[in-house]
Amino acid sequence: MSEAAIETVGLGKRYQRRWALEDCTFRIPRGHVVGLVGPNGAGKSTLLNLAAGLLAPSAGSIKVLGEQPARDAAQLARVGFVPQDAALYGWLSIEGHLRLGEHCNPQWDAKAAHARLAELGLSTRQRAGKLSGGQRAQLSLTIALAKCPELLLLDEPVASLDPLARREFLGLLMSTVAGRDVSIVLSSHLVSDIERVCDYLIVLVDSRVRVAGEIEELLAGHHRLIGLRQPGVAAPANQTVIAARETDRQRMLVVRSDGPVVETGWEIESINLEDLVLAYMGEGAARQAQLPTTQAAP
């Protein structure tokens, strides 16, 4: 249990000229449900594909469950991957997919897979192409879970699902977590879903990791400060400004607190996950654009 679920050092991936992921260094302990959030094109899919061993890094290194991804069959068997849009063979029946999974994986819990499909009310004779988006996602997850993986990677698993299917999918996922020792990394741009199911957060902006940590600790360690605008005063000591907004009189900051606020004149509020994520995303956007108007802050 001591080895990390995923550990990266200076990880980068380049497609032709563009860096899809750059200089990522983080360590995710095992046993967490990790939410990977960020705007489209921030590198979420790339990171997950690197972890699954479907891509090879262009720079740095990545270790998954202590080993290089897809290094050998044993490593592959420990990691399950649910790709975006539930990649399935449309012409192949559900039964066929299960047979394929059984054939391809040394460990295969056929009984559990069948039980889960029965629970979902899916006939195994149906073709995957005839399934609804929610059913496809469920089948894809069922296949990934039947491998009995120690780490499950999900790339935007619920992005294309309606609210009901999304709830059912996440419910199935969480019941798995409750049942056995499995770490999960799922990417999503829906913070509300992340808030429900995740206990660990990685914010990826502009192909870099902006912040990573346990959600409870992140929420405890970040605050919203509201105070009067004073010339020459950016923020209280021990506070790292993540995002700042100001009017002619007032100044509102989202800060990472490395210690208590000792200066007076600041109203301190706790922050919710959505605002925290938005604060980090906003910084990336501002950095990227480098608009003169954003440099108004001293």
Binding site: A73, C104, I143
Partner: peptide
């Protein structure tokens, strides 16, 4: 294109 190669690139099938 369909991403289905991921179904078959597995421990048993290189």
């Amino acid at each position: 294109e369909a991403g289905t190669y991921r179904l078959a690139w597995t421990p048993r099938v290189t």
